Simulated scan of single mutants.
Amino acid sequence: MQITRQADYALRAVIFLSRLDDDQKASTSAIAEEQKIPPSFLAKIVSQLSLAGLIQTSRGARGGVSLARPPEKISVLDVIEAIDGPVMLNECAGSPENCTFGESCPLQQIWCDTRQELVSRLSSATFAPENIH
């Protein structure tokens, strides 16, 4: 499994925003430059993160981008799923009833357990300052 480049860029953008003071906003150009994200790509990412309720944007001279909630309340899973959708290893791990072999599949439980472990790990990893260096 590999996350998309877009999800990787989104994670970097949230890391950047998590390092700001509570009342501070960042311009998308500052995020793009420091995190080496193509600006046109970042615009789409910001839109998706905003729709997911993870960041907030405001226009104008005092505008910019900031986190919509405290960094310790945003998980790595939140960001990945906002961009890529639910974490899936294969089709039957997300919907075991769709498995061609049904309950007789020797791999189904492995895929389901592995997916659950990954989701658990990603949901417990937040952008709290002590987690992000």
Score class of each variant (00 low, 15 high):
Leu49Lys: 14
Gln6Pro: 01
Ala13Trp: 05
Leu20Glu: 08
Ile15Arg: 15
Ala7Phe: 11
Ala30Glu: 15
Pro39His: 06
Ser29Thr: 11
Glu34Pro: 01
Arg19Thr: 05
Ser50His: 13
Thr28Gln: 12
Glu34Ile: 08
Ile31Pro: 00
Lys36Val: 09
Ile45Leu: 08
Lys36Gln: 13
Ile31Leu: 00
Gln6Leu: 05
Ala52Pro: 04
Asp23Gln: 10
Thr28Asp: 11
Ala10Tyr: 15
Gln48Thr: 05
Asp23Ile: 09
Val46Gln: 05
Gly53Met: 12
Ala52Arg: 06
Ser18Trp: 11
Val14Thr: 07
Ala13Ser: 07
Glu33Met: 06
Lys25Met: 15
Leu42Asn: 01
Leu51Val: 09
Gln35Arg: 15
Tyr9Asp: 13
Ser29Lys: 11
Gln6Met: 06
Lys25Pro: 00
Ile37Gly: 01
Ser27Cys: 01
Ala43Thr: 15
Pro39Asp: 09
Leu17Ser: 03
Ser40Glu: 13
Ile31Thr: 03
Ser47Asp: 08
Ala52Met: 01
Arg12Tyr: 01
Glu34Asp: 12
Val46Phe: 01
Leu11Lys: 06
Val14Asp: 07
Phe16Asn: 05
Ile15Tyr: 05
Lys44Val: 09
Gln35Ile: 03
Ala7Tyr: 01
Leu20Asn: 09
Ser27Gln: 04
Ala30Trp: 05
Gln48Phe: 02
Arg12Ser: 13
Leu11Asn: 07
Ala43Phe: 02
Ile15Pro: 00
Leu42Arg: 04
Asp23Arg: 08
Asp23Ser: 13
Asp22Asn: 07
Thr28Val: 13
Leu17Glu: 05
Leu20Ile: 03
Ile45Phe: 05
Ala13Met: 10
Gly53His: 10
Arg5Glu: 11
Leu42Cys: 07
Gly53Cys: 07
Arg12Asn: 12
Gln6Phe: 03
Ala32Ser: 15
Ala32Lys: 00
Ile31Lys: 02
Ile37Phe: 02
Leu51Asp: 09
Leu17Thr: 06
Glu33Ser: 06
Leu17Ile: 05
Arg12Cys: 07
Leu11Ile: 14
Ala7Gln: 03
Gln48Trp: 02
Ala43Asp: 11
Lys44Cys: 02
Asp21Leu: 10
Gln35Cys: 13
Ser18His: 07
Lys25Asp: 10
Ala7Gly: 06
Tyr9Gln: 04
Arg19Tyr: 04
Ala7Arg: 03
Leu20Lys: 09
Glu34Thr: 10
Gln48Lys: 15
Tyr9Ser: 10
Val14Cys: 04
Glu34Asn: 09
Gly53Arg: 12
Arg5Asn: 14
Val46Glu: 02
Arg19Lys: 15
Leu20Arg: 14
Ser47Pro: 00
Val14Ala: 06
Ser18Gln: 03
Ile37Trp: 00
Glu34Gly: 02
Arg12Gly: 04
Asp21Met: 09
Asp8Ile: 00
Ser40Lys: 15
Leu49Tyr: 10
Pro38Ala: 14
Arg5Val: 11
Ala52Trp: 02
Ala7Pro: 06
Ser18Glu: 02
Leu49Cys: 00
Asp22Lys: 10
Leu11Asp: 08
Arg5Trp: 01
Ile15Gln: 12
Glu33Pro: 00
Arg19Cys: 13
Ala10Gln: 12
Pro39Asn: 09
Ala26Lys: 00
Arg12Ile: 04
Ala13Cys: 04
Lys44Glu: 04
Phe41Tyr: 04
Val46Ala: 14
Leu20Gln: 14
Gln48Asn: 10
Lys36Leu: 11
Gln35Gly: 00
